[in-house]
Protein backbone atom coordinates (compact mmCIF):
# COMPACT_ATOMS: atom_id res chain seq x y z
CA UNK A 1 0.00 0.00 0.00
CA UNK A 2 2.93 2.33 0.57
CA UNK A 3 4.66 1.46 -2.66
CA UNK A 4 2.70 4.03 -4.65
CA UNK A 5 4.02 6.97 -2.67
CA UNK A 6 6.70 8.81 -4.60
CA UNK A 7 8.78 11.44 -2.94
CA UNK A 8 9.63 14.37 -5.09
CA UNK A 9 7.64 14.14 -8.28
CA UNK A 10 10.54 14.48 -10.69
CA UNK A 11 9.60 13.96 -14.34
CA UNK A 12 12.74 13.07 -16.31
CA UNK A 13 12.90 14.75 -19.71
CA UNK A 14 15.45 16.51 -21.85
CA UNK A 15 14.22 20.07 -21.94
CA UNK A 16 15.61 23.57 -21.64
CA UNK A 17 13.94 24.00 -18.24
CA UNK A 18 15.39 20.70 -17.00
CA UNK A 19 18.89 21.81 -17.98
CA UNK A 20 18.78 25.11 -16.11
CA UNK A 21 20.93 25.38 -13.00
CA UNK A 22 18.95 24.26 -9.95
CA UNK A 23 19.92 27.38 -7.99
CA UNK A 24 18.52 29.58 -10.75
CA UNK A 25 15.29 27.57 -10.75
CA UNK A 26 14.88 27.75 -6.98
CA UNK A 27 15.45 31.50 -6.88
CA UNK A 28 13.24 32.08 -9.92
CA UNK A 29 10.40 30.08 -8.34
CA UNK A 30 10.79 32.11 -5.16
CA UNK A 31 10.58 35.39 -7.11
CA UNK A 32 7.63 34.06 -9.11
CA UNK A 33 5.71 33.37 -5.86
CA UNK A 34 6.36 36.94 -4.69
CA UNK A 35 5.19 38.21 -8.10
CA UNK A 36 1.91 36.34 -7.63
CA UNK A 37 1.24 38.43 -4.55
CA UNK A 38 2.24 41.66 -6.31
CA UNK A 39 -0.32 41.03 -9.04
CA UNK A 40 -3.82 41.95 -7.90
CA UNK A 41 -5.98 42.14 -11.03
CA UNK A 42 -6.97 40.05 -14.03
CA UNK A 43 -4.55 41.74 -16.44
CA UNK A 44 -1.66 40.66 -14.20
CA UNK A 45 -2.94 37.11 -13.94
CA UNK A 46 -3.63 37.00 -17.66
CA UNK A 47 0.02 37.76 -18.38
CA UNK A 48 1.08 35.28 -15.67
CA UNK A 49 -0.96 32.49 -17.28
CA UNK A 50 0.67 33.15 -20.67
CA UNK A 51 4.08 33.14 -18.97
CA UNK A 52 3.34 29.85 -17.17
CA UNK A 53 1.95 28.33 -20.37
CA UNK A 54 5.20 29.05 -22.23
CA UNK A 55 7.30 27.55 -19.42
CA UNK A 56 5.14 24.40 -19.24
CA UNK A 57 5.46 24.05 -23.03
CA UNK A 58 9.26 24.45 -22.82
CA UNK A 59 9.55 21.95 -19.95
CA UNK A 60 8.02 19.10 -22.00
CA UNK A 61 6.17 17.90 -18.89
CA UNK A 62 2.62 16.74 -19.72
CA UNK A 63 -0.10 19.09 -18.39
CA UNK A 64 -1.60 16.05 -16.62
CA UNK A 65 1.35 15.98 -14.18
CA UNK A 66 0.98 19.68 -13.45
CA UNK A 67 -2.69 19.27 -12.60
CA UNK A 68 -2.02 16.28 -10.33
CA UNK A 69 -0.57 18.62 -7.73
CA UNK A 70 -3.79 20.63 -7.76
CA UNK A 71 -5.87 17.65 -6.61
CA UNK A 72 -4.26 17.79 -3.19
CA UNK A 73 -5.21 21.43 -2.62
CA UNK A 74 -8.64 21.25 -4.27
CA UNK A 75 -10.37 21.35 -0.86
CA UNK A 76 -8.31 24.36 0.23
CA UNK A 77 -9.26 26.22 -2.95
CA UNK A 78 -12.94 25.39 -2.31
CA UNK A 79 -12.83 26.60 1.29
CA UNK A 80 -11.00 29.86 0.57
CA UNK A 81 -13.32 30.40 -2.38
CA UNK A 82 -16.44 29.89 -0.23
CA UNK A 83 -15.11 32.12 2.54
CA UNK A 84 -14.36 34.89 0.07
CA UNK A 85 -17.74 34.60 -1.66
CA UNK A 86 -19.78 34.77 1.54
CA UNK A 87 -17.63 36.97 3.73
CA UNK A 88 -16.64 39.83 1.44
CA UNK A 89 -18.77 42.90 2.07
CA UNK A 90 -19.61 45.02 -0.99
CA UNK A 91 -22.09 47.27 -2.76
CA UNK A 92 -23.14 45.04 -5.64
CA UNK A 93 -25.41 42.58 -3.85
CA UNK A 94 -26.25 39.76 -6.23
CA UNK A 95 -28.16 37.46 -3.91
CA UNK A 96 -29.27 37.70 -0.30
CA UNK A 97 -31.04 35.29 2.01
CA UNK A 98 -31.43 35.57 5.81
CA UNK A 99 -28.31 37.66 6.30
CA UNK A 100 -26.14 35.61 3.93
CA UNK A 101 -25.18 37.75 0.98
CA UNK A 102 -23.19 37.20 -2.15
CA UNK A 103 -21.63 40.32 -3.57
CA UNK A 104 -19.95 41.05 -6.88
CA UNK A 105 -16.80 42.00 -4.99
CA UNK A 106 -16.91 38.65 -3.19
CA UNK A 107 -17.01 36.69 -6.45
CA UNK A 108 -14.18 38.84 -7.83
CA UNK A 109 -11.86 38.25 -4.83
CA UNK A 110 -12.76 34.54 -4.70
CA UNK A 111 -11.79 34.22 -8.36
CA UNK A 112 -8.52 36.09 -7.80
CA UNK A 113 -7.59 34.05 -4.74
CA UNK A 114 -8.32 30.73 -6.47
CA UNK A 115 -6.22 31.75 -9.49
CA UNK A 116 -3.41 32.85 -7.20
CA UNK A 117 -3.40 29.49 -5.37
CA UNK A 118 -3.55 27.48 -8.59
CA UNK A 119 -0.63 29.44 -10.10
CA UNK A 120 1.31 29.05 -6.88
CA UNK A 121 0.99 25.27 -6.98
CA UNK A 122 1.72 25.02 -10.69
CA UNK A 123 4.73 27.31 -10.33
CA UNK A 124 6.30 25.24 -7.58
CA UNK A 125 5.35 21.98 -9.34
CA UNK A 126 7.42 23.09 -12.33
CA UNK A 127 10.43 23.35 -10.01
CA UNK A 128 10.01 19.87 -8.51
CA UNK A 129 8.99 18.25 -11.78
CA UNK A 130 12.00 19.49 -13.71
CA UNK A 131 14.66 19.27 -10.98
CA UNK A 132 15.82 15.91 -9.58
CA UNK A 133 15.83 15.72 -5.76
CA UNK A 134 19.62 15.56 -5.79
CA UNK A 135 19.98 18.70 -7.89
CA UNK A 136 17.45 20.35 -5.62
CA UNK A 137 19.48 19.42 -2.53
CA UNK A 138 22.73 20.63 -4.12
CA UNK A 139 21.01 23.86 -5.11
CA UNK A 140 19.68 24.48 -1.61
CA UNK A 141 23.10 23.78 -0.11
CA UNK A 142 24.75 26.18 -2.50
CA UNK A 143 22.15 28.94 -1.91
CA UNK A 144 22.41 28.58 1.86
CA UNK A 145 26.22 28.52 1.83
CA UNK A 146 26.71 32.31 2.17
CA UNK A 147 24.47 32.23 5.26
CA UNK A 148 26.79 29.79 7.08
CA UNK A 149 28.38 32.76 8.85
CA UNK A 150 25.11 33.62 10.61
CA UNK A 151 24.76 30.03 11.77
CA UNK A 152 22.63 28.39 9.09
CA UNK A 153 23.90 24.79 8.80
CA UNK A 154 23.84 24.58 4.99
CA UNK A 155 25.83 21.39 4.61
CA UNK A 156 24.02 19.59 7.42
CA UNK A 157 20.58 20.46 6.01
CA UNK A 158 21.61 19.17 2.57
CA UNK A 159 23.12 15.99 4.04
CA UNK A 160 19.93 15.35 6.00
CA UNK A 161 17.85 15.77 2.85
CA UNK A 162 20.13 13.40 0.93
CA UNK A 163 19.86 10.73 3.61
CA UNK A 164 16.10 11.22 3.91
CA UNK A 165 15.71 10.79 0.15
CA UNK A 166 17.71 7.58 0.33
CA UNK A 167 15.91 6.10 3.34
CA UNK A 168 12.27 7.08 2.84
CA UNK A 169 11.67 4.29 0.30
CA UNK A 170 13.52 1.80 2.52
CA UNK A 171 11.46 2.71 5.58
CA UNK A 172 8.22 2.61 3.58
CA UNK A 173 9.06 -0.86 2.39
CA UNK A 174 9.83 -1.88 5.94
CA UNK A 175 6.51 -0.47 7.19
CA UNK A 176 4.77 -2.55 4.57
CA UNK A 177 6.65 -5.64 5.70
CA UNK A 178 5.90 -5.14 9.41
CA UNK A 179 2.25 -4.42 8.62
CA UNK A 180 1.92 -7.64 6.65
CA UNK A 181 3.66 -9.57 9.43
CA UNK A 182 1.26 -8.11 12.03
CA UNK A 183 -1.74 -8.74 9.80
CA UNK A 184 -0.67 -12.35 9.37
CA UNK A 185 -0.87 -12.65 13.14
CA UNK A 186 -4.34 -11.14 13.31
CA UNK A 187 -3.69 -7.40 13.64
CA UNK A 188 -6.48 -5.24 12.28
CA UNK A 189 -5.51 -1.88 10.78
CA UNK A 190 -8.65 -1.11 8.86
CA UNK A 191 -11.76 -1.36 10.99
CA UNK A 192 -12.96 0.66 13.98
CA UNK A 193 -13.11 4.33 14.79
CA UNK A 194 -10.30 6.79 14.54
CA UNK A 195 -9.04 6.13 18.08
CA UNK A 196 -9.06 2.37 17.65
CA UNK A 197 -7.23 2.70 14.37
CA UNK A 198 -4.65 5.03 15.87
CA UNK A 199 -4.11 2.54 18.69
CA UNK A 200 -3.62 -0.31 16.24
CA UNK A 201 -0.69 1.63 14.75
CA UNK A 202 1.37 1.28 17.94
CA UNK A 203 2.56 -2.29 17.20
CA UNK A 204 3.57 -0.95 13.80
CA UNK A 205 5.42 2.16 14.94
CA UNK A 206 7.45 0.62 17.77
CA UNK A 207 9.38 -1.90 15.63
CA UNK A 208 9.69 0.69 12.87
CA UNK A 209 11.33 3.21 15.19
CA UNK A 210 13.65 0.63 16.70
CA UNK A 211 14.80 -0.45 13.27
CA UNK A 212 15.20 3.17 12.13
CA UNK A 213 17.49 3.91 15.07
CA UNK A 214 19.53 0.79 14.37
CA UNK A 215 19.86 1.82 10.75
CA UNK A 216 20.92 5.33 11.77
CA UNK A 217 23.65 3.93 13.98
CA UNK A 218 25.00 1.65 11.28
CA UNK A 219 24.83 4.38 8.68
CA UNK A 220 26.74 6.78 10.92
CA UNK A 221 29.44 4.15 11.35
CA UNK A 222 29.61 3.51 7.61
CA UNK A 223 29.86 7.27 6.95
CA UNK A 224 32.69 7.63 9.44
CA UNK A 225 34.47 4.63 7.95
CA UNK A 226 34.42 6.52 4.66
CA UNK A 227 36.13 9.50 6.25
CA UNK A 228 33.06 11.71 6.65
CA UNK A 229 33.86 14.60 8.99
CA UNK A 230 31.27 17.24 8.22
CA UNK A 231 31.18 19.80 5.45
CA UNK A 232 34.61 21.32 5.99
CA UNK A 233 37.21 20.72 3.27
CA UNK A 234 34.69 18.58 1.44
CA UNK A 235 34.63 18.74 -2.35
CA UNK A 236 31.83 17.75 -4.70
CA UNK A 237 32.08 15.59 -7.79
CA UNK A 238 29.40 17.54 -9.61
CA UNK A 239 30.08 21.26 -9.70
CA UNK A 240 27.15 23.61 -10.27
CA UNK A 241 27.91 25.91 -13.20
CA UNK A 242 25.99 29.02 -14.25
CA UNK A 243 25.80 29.18 -18.05
CA UNK A 244 24.43 31.67 -20.56
CA UNK A 245 20.96 30.14 -20.52
CA UNK A 246 20.84 30.64 -16.75
CA UNK A 247 21.61 34.35 -17.16
CA UNK A 248 18.86 34.57 -19.78
CA UNK A 249 16.42 32.84 -17.42
CA UNK A 250 17.27 35.30 -14.64
CA UNK A 251 16.77 38.24 -17.02
CA UNK A 252 13.38 36.88 -18.10
CA UNK A 253 12.16 36.48 -14.52
CA UNK A 254 13.41 40.02 -13.75
CA UNK A 255 11.48 41.45 -16.72
CA UNK A 256 8.38 39.50 -15.62
CA UNK A 257 8.66 40.97 -12.11
CA UNK A 258 8.98 44.46 -13.57
CA UNK A 259 5.82 43.95 -15.67
CA UNK A 260 3.92 42.74 -12.59
CA UNK A 261 4.99 45.81 -10.61
CA UNK A 262 4.06 48.15 -13.49
CA UNK A 263 0.60 46.58 -13.88
CA UNK A 264 -0.14 46.93 -10.18
CA UNK A 265 1.02 50.48 -9.67
CA UNK A 266 0.10 52.16 -12.96
Amino acid sequence: MFRDITIGQYYPANSLIHKLDSRVKIIATFIFIIDLFIANNYIGYGITSIFLGIIIFLSKVPIKYMLKGLKAIFVIILITGALNIFMTPGEHVLWSYKGITITGEGLYTAGLMATRLIFLIIGSSILTLTTSPIQLTDGIESILNPFKKIGIPAHEVAMMMTIALRFIPILLEETDKIMKAQMARGADFESGGIIKRAKSLIPLLVPLFISAFRRAEELAMAMEARCYRGGENRTRMKQLVIENKDYIAMTIIAIFTLIMILIRFI
Binding site: L165, L219, R226, C227
Partner: peptide, 17 residues
Protein backbone atom coordinates in the same frame (compact mmCIF):
# COMPACT_ATOMS: atom_id res chain seq x y z
CA UNK B 1 26.01 1.79 4.15
CA UNK B 2 24.83 3.44 0.95
CA UNK B 3 24.39 7.14 1.60
CA UNK B 4 23.26 8.77 -1.63
CA UNK B 5 20.17 8.09 -3.74
CA UNK B 6 22.19 7.60 -6.94
CA UNK B 7 24.90 4.97 -7.45
CA UNK B 8 27.64 7.27 -8.77
CA UNK B 9 26.94 9.89 -6.08
CA UNK B 10 27.40 7.25 -3.43
CA UNK B 11 30.69 6.03 -4.86
CA UNK B 12 31.83 9.68 -4.91
CA UNK B 13 31.03 10.10 -1.20
CA UNK B 14 34.40 8.84 0.07
CA UNK B 15 36.66 10.87 -2.23
CA UNK B 16 34.45 13.94 -1.65
CA UNK B 17 35.15 13.60 2.07
Amino acid sequence: QIIAAIVEEDVAFGPEN
